[in-house]
Write a protein that binds this DNA or RNA. Structure first.
Length: 435
RNA sequence: CGGGGUGUAGCUCAGCCUGGUAGAGCGCCAGCUUUGGGAGCUGGAUGCCGGAGGUUCGAAUCCUCUCGCCCCGACCA
């Protein structure tokens, strides 16, 4: 069954809000509630309504495609895990109250996974025995739970969140480094496809252990952490083929690691100061888990080798908020086309007027048949309400048909990003939207 | 986990100090008018005033306990 790509607003479950719910502080949270994308179900836990769910799936799909393109293979691990494997790695006690612990009916200790290193290591060690099967990068996109003391900012800092996590397995450090670089590249491509400028920052490896690690921060005025980076980054990142070597030499750090006296720090006129939202984190951690959990393969000489591992996370649900932080104005969201829930919002200004109805129905059918996702506002409502809702939900294109224009054979096409409007024939509008 | 705030209609909030028949705007329903940027008029529905206990003739209002949510900090993808 092919997915329904278009929708009539009169039937679509999209409860928009004119006023801002008092619980929301930042733009993305406010707009997601107002646009009818999410509703909070408990602190830091959200229901994704149809509009939000569509965006989440678009983002997820881009992440998936870039992981696949980088040679990673998708699988799906469960949300609930046994405490046993976490005892093997030693993290069951080390992980604090952020871990949601559960007891089943047989009094077995379980937990809702905050991450999956243990589980993937178990799967790997039970099924891979030879270096010949390496390298491998396995990933899944699954809901995680971390019982944050203080959830906030809507889906940007929820307790339940959707995350893509990949795990690489290599026979030696050189291999692990290649895997790391493959993921590094995939991340740059992934965020770029979503219209985001994501800067890899030198990150503190902290408790995870390892010496290769980067955080990817999306630039947004409302970002939670301050970031400092070399202006040269922007020119390099704008190119299609990213020069990793050059890029990795540039200065880019979060505020807690910023050191103006460091010899690496560029002079003031080349140092950019901005705010960022962390949307990805990659790190190499060597044999930390393979040693603790006995993930061993036979090497070329027949002797057992502990595999070299790395893990690579992307906050998929957080990205929805991050993109809105980067793309909105005081009227609402301005989706980049790649992640927009629909490409076109078709506005019938006078439902019931036979000429308007006919033009809109024709456009709706034609675009849908050509694979263009359309949200058709066929509600019997006032123009102001329709324009306000369209601006709020932020579809990239608004195609407006009203009695005056239709009589002259014209419709209006508005670009949500630029605000630019053009009057043109139906044919010309369709041509532009299907190009 | 420390500090602060808040809970009254679907949403935003008033009422609480000083106890006495539960309110406004928006939204929703019906009708009329209106029709290119969140319309106007008329009529209507909607609340265990977060929960439990207490004081009182009488509690949204005072007291005690409790739960939820939000903000600041510490923590985090």
């Amino acid at each position: 069954m092919s997915p329904r790509i278009s929708m009539r607003l009169s039937r679509f479950f999209m409860p928009t809000l004119k006023e801002t719910p008092s619980e929301a502080q930042i733009a993305s949270h406010r707009l997601m509630l107002r646009a009818g994308m999410i509703r909070q179900s408990a602190s830091g836990i959200y229901t994704w309504l149809p509009l939000g769910w569509k965006v989440l799936q678009k983002i997820e799909q881009i992440v998936r495609e870039e992981q696949d393109a980088a040679g990673a293979q998708e699988l799906l691990m469960p949300t609930i895990q046994s405490a046993d494997i976490w005892r093997e790695s030693g993290r069951y006690d080390a992980y604090g109250k952020e871990m949601l612990r559960i007891v089943d009916r047989h009094d077995r200790e379980m937990l809702y996974g905050p991450t999956n290193e243990e589980l993937i290591t178990q799967v790997f060690r039970d099924n891979v025995k030879s270096y010949r099967e390496l390298p491998k990068i396995l990933y899944h996109i699954q809901w995680k739970f971390r019982d944050e003391v203080r959830p906030r900012f809507g889906v940007m800092r929820g307790r339940e969140f959707l995350m893509k996590d990949s795990y690489s397995f290599d026979i030696d450090f050189e291999g692990a480094k290649r895997s790391y670089e493959a993921m590094f590249n995939a991340y740059l491509r992934t965020f770029k496809r979503m219209g985001l400028t994501a800067i890899p920052m030198v990150a503190d490896s902290g408790a995870i252990g390892g010496n290769l690690t980067h955080e990817f921060h999306v630039l947004a005025e409302t970002g939670e952490s301050g970031v400092f980076y070399d202006v040269a980054y922007e020119e390099l990142a704008a190119k299609d083929a990213v020069d990793l070597e050059a890029l990795s030499k540039l200065y880019a750090v979060t505020d807690e690691k910023h050191d103006p006296n460091s010899p690496d720090c560029p002079p003031a006129d080349r140092l950019k100061v901005a705010r960022g939202i962390e949307v990805g984190h990659i790190f190499y951690f060597g044999t930390k888990y393979s040693k603790a959990m006995g993930a061993v393969v036979a090497g070329p000489d027949g002797n057992p080798v502990h595999v070299e591992m790395g893990s690579y996370g992307i906050g998929v649900s957080r990205l929805v908020g991050a993109i809105i932080e980067a793309y909105h104005d005081d009227r609402g969201i301005k989706w980049p086309e790649a992640v927009a829930p629909f490409k076109v919002g078709l506005v019938n200004l006078k439902v019931g007027d036979s000429a308007c109805d006919k033009v809109c129905e024709d456009i709706y059918r034609t675009l849908s048949e050509q694979g263009v996702e359309v949200l058709y506002d066929d509600r019997d409502d006032r123009a102001g309400v329709k324009f306000a809702d369209m601006d709020l939900i932020g579809l990239p294109w608004q195609l407006v048909a009203g009695p005056k224009g239709v009589a002259a054979g014209l419709v209006e096409l508005k670009n949500r990003h630029t605000g630019e409007k053009q009057e043109l024939s139906v044919e010309a509008a369709l041509a532009q939207l299907t190009a």
